[in-house]
Structure formats: structure tokens, C-alpha cells
């Protein structure tokens, strides 16, 4: 019987799975996820697809904000860069498998440009610099009509692989799932490497990191690049899923939503990005169900839905920050620790 974490080698300490059981459970979860399209309706597959995209984007943001400590309000902009790159690339006949990573790379490049101020800025000032990035990208998207279609938006052909078109949510589910799993796997491993540990060192104390031989600016830029790559890939998948994108898909609220995801999920935790993305994406759906159920007795509720959604989102963030600042991931670990020692948990 296990009664605690007793790691005796460095290899054990570095391992992703601390037991064969955890590995088995994850495999079972994956199998379940692959089988999900057999069970779920089209609407819920649309929701799961959006969750997958949100997970990728939130993981990207968490790499930058949670692990490297650079606050970014520009995520909606990087998402837009990814989505519009995909639109432009597919219009020129670039296949799906190349368009997605290239959109990520373009987004990474833009991310590095706006990461440059991080050389001299931190904290609030950096947050505002990335906010400026958001407005500048938005302006470009609206006014570069030949490339982006301006305010009217632009259409994207469904992705094709070996002649097979992923033209509905049920089919698109699989590439999104594959991308999400691959990106999570990469992120999890990133923080077992030298570069990942350098990111964490910069977050914890940038001056000590520099003293210990971490090239701070280079790693900050790298973090911006990796993070925007993730967000760009998410944007690319979003473009394929939405089929028509316009500036309205990328308001500042999206960036705030994603910050909410990593705050509620847990800063500096891959699991946290996943949990937070699921929570924030499902929150409006749960509200929709609830208002739908109560619409009979409170008919005014339907008109209030938009503001209700906004208010509950804000309330969730404020309450989490006050009562559970380390997020859902920390709560999960605490629950796990409790049961590990179960009858003697004190």
C-alpha cells in the first residue's frame, strides 16, 4: 500500500508519471477521448473542439505567464495572427499539415517582436505593452483588407488530408485531439529540460537567474516564441473550425478569458491549463443549460444571458483569486494527497 511520496532517485523525481496506475489511467482517458465522437452529439463535439483549442492556447499562455512570469494581455492578437495566417496559407493552396505549424511559426515571430519590450519591462509595464500589441494587431487585421478581408471576415476551406475532408466537427475532432495531446506532451517535457528550467528560474528571480548563467533576455524571447507558437497553432485550428473568421472572433475579452483559464486552473501547471480551459469553456454552456431550464419560471433571464455570462466569469475569477489563488490544479493535488494517506490523512 502506498502511503506517501518517497522518491529515492533523481530519475523518479523527474518522471512524468509517478506510478503505473497514473499511466494506465491516462491511457484509459485517451481511449475514452478517441471514442467520444461515437457518443456525443454534434453540439457537444463543437464544445469539445473548442475546449481542445482553448487547452492549446491556455497552455501557451501558461508557458509565458505561469512558467516564465511574463504577463501577457496580447493572446487574442497572437490567436488572430495564427488564424489569419492559416486563412492566407490555405487560400494559396498550402495543405493542412503544413499550414498549421507554419501559422504557429508566423505567430511565434510576431510574438517575438512584441516580446522585445520585455528586455526592459516587467510586471505591469509588460502587461500594458502586450495590450498595445493587441490593439495594433487588431488595427492591422481590420485595415489589411487584401489579406484579411477586413471587418467582413474571410472564409477558410475545410482541411484535407490524403483526399479526406475534415468538414464537420465530428471529423475535425480527431486532428484537434491529436494536436492537443502532442502540444501537451511537448509542454510537459519542456519543463524537464534545461530551457524549461531556465524559464522557471527567470520567473522566480530574474536577477539570480542571470547570476547563475541563464541568458535572461534570450530565454524571455524564447518563451514568447514558444508561447505564441502554441497560441498560433490554436488560432490555426480555430480558423479551420470556425470556417469564417473576422476581427470579431478576437476581441480583448478572449485574452482575458485565457488569462482567467490559467488563473483558475493554476499558474505554472500544465494540468492547470487543461482544467482551467475546460472550466472556462464549459461555464457559459452550463449557464446556457441553467437559463434554459429556468426560462419557464423566469422569462427575463434569457435577455440577461450575455451579461450573466460576463458577470459569472468575473465572479469566478475574483472568487478563485481570493479563496484558491493557486487554482484548481493545486486543489487536485491536495485531494490526491489526502486520499494517498487516506485513513491517516492528518
Amino acid at each position: 500500500m502506498r502511503c506517501g511520496d518517497f522518491r529515492t532517485t533523481y530519475a523518479e523525481d523527474m518522471a512524468i508519471f509517478d506510478s503505473a496506475l497514473a499511466r494506465g489511467l491516462l491511457a484509459a482517458l485517451l481511449v475514452l477521448l478517441v471514442l467520444l465522437p461515437l457518443l456525443a452529439t454534434g453540439y457537444w463535439l463543437d464544445v469539445t473542439n473548442r475546449i481542445g483549442i482553448a487547452v492549446i492556447a491556455a497552455t501557451g499562455l501558461n508557458i509565458l505567464t505561469g512558467f516564465t512570469g511574463q504577463i501577457s494581455l496580447g493572446n487574442a492578437a497572437f490567436l488572430a495572427v495564427g488564424a489569419y495566417s492559416t486563412a492566407a496559407l490555405t487560400a494559396r493552396g498550402v495543405p493542412f499539415l503544413i499550414a498549421v505549424p507554419s501559422s504557429g511559426l508566423i505567430s511565434a515571430l510576431v510574438g517575438m517582436i512584441f516580446g522585445f519590450p520585455s528586455l526592459r519591462l516587467k510586471g505591469l509595464y509588460l502587461a500594458i505593452a502586450t495590450l498595445a500589441a493587441h490593439f495594433i494587431v487588431e488595427f492591422t487585421v481590420v485595415h489589411w483588407e487584401s489579406m484579411t478581408g477586413g471587418v467582413n471576415g474571410i472564409g477558410i476551406d475545410p482541411p484535407k488530408l490524403f483526399g479526406y475532408a475534415f468538414d464537420e466537427d465530428r471529423k475535425l475532432y480527431f486532428p484537434i485531439l491529436a494536436a492537443t495531446v502532442a502540444m501537451l506532451w511537448f509542454a510537459k517535457n519542456l519543463f524537464r529540460t534545461r530551457v524549461g528550467k531556465a524559464f522557471v528560474a527567470i520567473r522566480d528571480q530574474d536577477i539570480s537567474a542571470e547570476v547563475m548563467g541563464v541568458a535572461v533576455f534570450r530565454h524571455k524571447l524564447l518563451s514568447f516564441a514558444v508561447s505564441s507558437f502554441y497560441v498560433g497553432v490554436a488560432g490555426s485550428l480555430l480558423a479551420y473550425q470556425a470556417r469564417i473568421i473576422s476581427p470579431e472572433n478576437f476581441p480583448l475579452g478572449v485574452a482575458i478569458d485565457q488569462l482567467g483559464m490559467i488563473i483558475i486552473g493554476g499558474l505554472g501547471s500544465i494540468l492547470g491549463s487543461v482544467l482551467g480551459a475546460i472550466f472556462i469553456t464549459l461555464l457559459p454552456e452550463a449557464l446556457r443549460l441553467l437559463t434554459g431550464a429556468l426560462a419557464g419560471s423566469f422569462p427575463g433571464l434569457v435577455q440577461l444571458f450575455a451579461s450573466l455570462k460576463l458577470g459569472v466569469f468575473g465572479l469566478a475569477i475574483v472568487l478563485f483569486l481570493i479563496f484558491e489563488p493557486d487554482g484548481m490544479a493545486a486543489r487536485w493535488h491536495r485531494i490526491k494527497a489526502y486520499w494517498k494517506l487516506y485513513p491517516f490523512s492528518y
Binding site: I256, L259, S307, L308, K309, L310, L315, A316, I317, L321
Partner: peptide, 24 residues
């Protein structure tokens, strides 16, 4: 005493709540 990101987020959350109230 909380980190700066939390403080930024709490005011952003606050702005969502206030906007929702005003809209409501």
C-alpha cells in the same frame, strides 16, 4: 501581498462583473 498577475486579474474580473451589472 499577492503577485502582480493576481492583482491585474482581480481588477479585470472586477471589470467583467461591473460591466455585467451595468448591462443587466
Amino acid at each position: 501581498g499577492e503577485p502582480i498577475i493576481s492583482v491585474i486579474m482581480v481588477t479585470l474580473g472586477l471589470s467583467s462583473i461591473l460591466r455585467a451589472i451595468v448591462q443587466g
